[in-house]
């Protein structure tokens, strides 16, 4: 299989598999976050479960991190290889005549998502790792011991307007990336036939509604804090 993984199709295939995995993760992330709008207690409970469950923390989280890193690194490697495949550029190229802006600019939308992700990690993931695994506080409780800290931390983060605006822009780029990426992933794994055509509409809905939902959550907490 090493020949497969080093081939152009193999790389496409693994890019698509990591993309499909990340899209499943985003759906799960959204399902948990939307609970913070309707039921802060449920949000706290499931956040504590996800943050302390050994299976999630030591099995699923490393797989997720590998998926994220692989998708970005391979994305940049493929972009460099693809640019090298045309050494002399066209004097005039009308890309808009035959393809969408999103499909031609995946590297840019992906690059902005990477920047957003770094900020998102600094905001949430690194403090979480610090609290649990460096300071050793696995209780998930507020400093005064009155209930879980997750909902308070989340809503507190969305107080500054600049951070809400930054997250909204990040989700717009996520939407642009998914508008091409969702269906592209299925095409790459060879799933393009009459049975799969119905997925195209679902892919567009996913690419628009999920990022829109994340934007709603950020705005909701900003205006209701």
């Amino acid at each position: 299989m090493s020949g497969f993984l080093n081939s152009s199709i193999g790389r496409k295939f693994t890019m698509a598999l990591s993309a499909l995995f990340l899209m499943l993760f985003i759906l799960q992330h959204f399902a948990i976050n939307i609970l913070s709008v309707f039921s802060p207690d449920s949000f706290n409970e499931i956040s504590h479960f996800m943050g302390t469950n050994p299976l999630v923390q030591f099995a699923l989280q490393p797989v997720l991190l590998f998926g994220v890193i692989y998708h970005f690194v391979m994305g940049f490697i493929l972009e460099i290889k693809n640019r090298n495949a045309r050494t002399v550029k066209y004097y005039k190229n009308n890309g808009a005549a035959n393809s969408t802006w999103m499909s031609r600019n995946m590297i840019w939308s992906g690059g902005f998502i990477l920047v957003f992700l770094v900020i998102h990690f600094i905001d949430f993931w690194f403090p979480e790792i610090n609290t649990k695994f460096i300071q050793g506080d696995m209780s998930g409780l507020l400093a005064d011991g009155e209930g879980y800290r997750y909902y308070e931390e989340l809503t507190h983060k969305f107080v500054p307007v600049w951070r809400v605006a930054l997250y909204c822009v990040g989700f717009v780029f996520l939407s642009l990336h998914l508008l091409h990426g969702f269906n592209s992933a299925f095409q790459s794994v060879g799933a393009n036939n009459k049975y799969i055509k119905g997925l195209k509409g679902f892919g567009k809905a996913y690419a628009i509604l999920i990022p829109l939902g994340f934007i709603f959550i950020a705005l909701f907490h900003h205006f209701n804090h």
Partner: peptide, 20 residues
């Protein structure tokens, strides 16, 4: 596929421009 890769063609990113 091996010969295609050897010739230096790029990787498909499913833009669909070729089909159009």
């Amino acid at each position: 596929v091996a010969q295609m890769d050897l010739e230096g063609f790029g990787n498909c990113t499913n833009t669909g421009a070729c089909e159009v």
